[in-house]
Each structure stands twice: as structure tokens, then as C-alpha cells.
């Protein structure tokens, strides 16, 4: 949408970002030298293999990586501030108000022993001086926006009294409370049905358009990425292997891994079996296993699973453009789209 903003205005500008875990004398890189920029109002989708480092990337963007994890970056600017040497105090000034995170697991946001109203009022009071009554009203309105019916009554519930999807939505509502500059959402709608998901995506879009909130949306749901994001980054084994405008990447994937992802989607599989129930139907999968951290192969990490691999792939491929804005990290990309 507004991807024309230049880098100076970017909400987030990070290059050479790595997250490492020291282990037996070596440093294992869960996130390995990635660069990201997001403009105000822009939606960046981040997809990739389970364990490829998406959540670690998200944590590092909010200063939430805990030891023994170590974060390093060449440049790291967030909301106009230099964050490379930021201490916990600097992070706390941004978190919650200017940047917010929706965790993959809602119980990382929610405290199991406190009622929802207590937690939401606390989140509001952390950044605003309003009375308790006004705060409760804001909390109820936020719950309604994420499709929770009977919000005033649900405010009295403890987390365990809500369904899994409701807990997820409460966590989303808390992130929306202060209309931050950047929301990092880690698989926020994984367990939500299509109606509620559409409601939340509508709220997110409205927020991006009205307040210029930028969104980093981590998901494995390619249909959501297709409908919501402006650009998409595909991660594999800690690196970005492909990035570009969503329609291009999904319609003309250049990296063999992206192609494999698209082929594994059950909706895309030709399984219009009318009533052959009981027969074993198999989905197309990418052969082999994703490499464990520490077992990652040399060169292109996708090599052992890739049908196009050659001896050249023993080196690490660089991220190169196949068309303007569409980049791929592969020696034998599937598409040489001309500009």
C-alpha cells in the first residue's frame, strides 16, 4: 500500500540481525544475518518453516530475547530511535505503547491467576492516566473489536475460563489498546475460525489505515498473507531465502522452498474426492526433515532437500534480485522474472 515511504521514515529498519545461542564452544544462529524494514501503515508478512527463527526474530525486535540468547545487528532503528545498545529502560519506554507484540502463545501475555479486567486495566494504566471506569470501558470496547460477545461479563473471567481462541483474541485486544506504531504479531490467528479471523483482520487493516500502524505478521497461513500483506519474507533455517511483493512471491515463487510450501497447502491439493472416505490421501510434502539448529548443512541450508541442488550450492547463495523488489537466495531460482 504505502511501501513508497523511504527508509528514513521507516518504523523499523534493521540490518545484519542475528540471534545466537552459545553451545559447546560454537554459537548456533537461530537468526542469521537478516535485514528488515517496515514503513508506517505497511504490512509485512513473515512465513517459513517451523523452527526457522520467526519467533526469535520477533523477540529480538522487541528486546525480549533472554540469555543465553545473544542479539547483534549492524543497524537497528525502531520508531526513530537507535536500539543497538538500548538498555531495558529504553525498551520499556517503547514496549506496550509504541511497539506491541502478540505472542504465539497467548499465555505469554496473560497471567493465569489474574482476571482479564485486572490485566487490561493494568495495560492501559501503564501508559495513560484515565480513571478505572474509563479504562474498563476501553477494555470492553477492545474485546468487542476482536469479536468477543458479552465483553463486560467476559472481563470478569480468568484466562482458563475462556476458550483457546478467546484467549488468543484477548491477547490481540491488549496489543491494540494503545494504537502503537508497530505491532509484531506471531501467529495471532492460528486457531481462529474464518469469521472471527476476518473480523480481526478487518480491525488490523482499519488500524493500519487510520493510525499508520505498521504490522509484522508472522504466519504459516499463506491465504492470510495473500489477503493481508504488502510484502512477504520467507525464512528457512535462520535466513531470509526470498522476499518481495506478496502477489509476485506467491504467484511466481523463485526459491525451491517457497515452491514446496505452496505445493503442500491442502486447499491447493487436488483432493476433490467426493466420497472416497477411508482411502489414504497423501499431501505433497518437501522431502526430508528441516535441519535442527546445530545440524544445519553448509552452504544453502535447503540443499539436502532440494531437487535443483548442484555443487554450487555448497556455498551460501547471496540474496539477489529476480525483479525489482523481489529477491531470492538461490543459485538455481525457479523464475528469472525480467524487470
Amino acid at each position: 500500500m504505502n511501501s513508497v515511504h523511504n527508509a528514513a521514515q521507516a518504523v523499523l529498519e534493521v540490518t545484519g540481525l542475528s540471534v545466537g545461542f552459545a553451545q559447546r564452544g560454537t554459537v548456533l544462529r537461530a537468526v542469521d544475518d537478516i535485514s528488515l524494514h517496515i514503513a508506517p501503515g505497511e504490512v509485512l508478512g513473515l512465513v517459513g518453516e517451523s523452527g526457522s527463527g520467526k519467533s526469535m526474530t520477533a523477540y529480538s525486535l522487541l528486546g525480549l530475547v533472554e540469555p543465553p540468547g545473544q542479539v547483534s545487528a549492524d543497524t537497528f532503528r525502531l520508531c526513530g530511535k537507535e536500539m543497538r545498545a538500548a538498555d531495558e529502560r529504553a525498551w520499556r519506554q517503547l514496549r506496550g505503547r509504541r511497539i506491541a507484540m502478540i505472542f504465539q502463545d497467548p499465555m505469554m501475555t496473560l497471567n493465569p491467576v489474574l482476571r482479564i479486567d485486572t490485566q487490561m486495566v493494568e495495560a492501559i494504566h501503564a501508559h495513560r492516566r484515565v480513571g478505572r471506569g474509563a479504562a474498563l470501558e476501553m477494555a470492553a470496547a477492545a474485546l468487542q473489536r476482536v469479536g468477543i460477545a458479552d465483553a463486560p461479563a467476559r472481563l470478569h473471567a480468568y484466562p482458563h475460563q475462556l476458550s483457546g481462541g478467546m484467549r488468543q483474541r484477548v491477547a490481540i485486544a491488549i496489543a491494540l489498546l494503545n494504537a502503537p506504531d508497530l505491532i509484531v504479531a506471531d501467529e495471532p490467528t492460528t486457531a481462529l475460525d474464518v469469521t472471527i479471523q476476518a473480523q480481526i483482520l478487518a480491525e488490523m487493516q482499519a488500524l493500519c489505515q487510520a493510525s499508520g500502524t505498521a504490522l509484522l505478521w508472522i504466519t504459516h497461513d499463506l491465504a492470510v498473507v495473500a489477503a493481508l500483506a504488502d510484502r512477504v519474507c520467507v525464512m528457512y533455517a535462520g535466513r531470509i531465502v526470498e522476499q518481495g511483493p506478496v502477489d509476485q512471491v506467491l504467484a511466481q515463487p523463485a526459491h525451491p522452498y517457497t515452491r514446496g510450501l505452496l505445493d503442500s497447502t491442502p486447499a491447493a491439493a487436488p483432493s476433490q474426492h467426493a466420497d472416497n472416505a477411508g482411502a489414504t490421501r497423501r499431501l505433497s510434502t518437501i522431502p526430508g526433515l528441516p535441519p535442527a539448529l546445530g545440524e544445519r548443512p553448509e552452504g544453502c541450508a535447503f540443499r539436502p532437500r532440494c531437487a535443483r541442488a548442484s555443487a554450487a550450492c555448497l556455498q551460501v547463495p547471496a540474496l539477489v534480485a529476480v525483479s525489482p523488489g523481489h529477491e531470492v537466495r538461490c543459485f538455481h531460482p525457479l523464475a528469472r522474472v525480467s524487470a
Binding site: V194, Q197, A198, Q199, L201, A202, A226, D230, A267, A268
Partner: peptide
């Protein structure tokens, strides 16, 4: 429910609140 099932093909779209 079936009418709302998302697909890969739609491309970028505006979501409508309930």
C-alpha cells in the same frame, strides 16, 4: 462457513467487520 473459507487466489483484499 464454507462461503468464507479463504483461498490463495483472492489477492489483497479489504476485510469486512462482522
Amino acid at each position: 462457513l464454507l462461503a468464507e473459507a479463504p483461498t490463495l487466489k483472492v489477492g489483497k483484499r479489504q476485510f469486512i467487520p462482522i
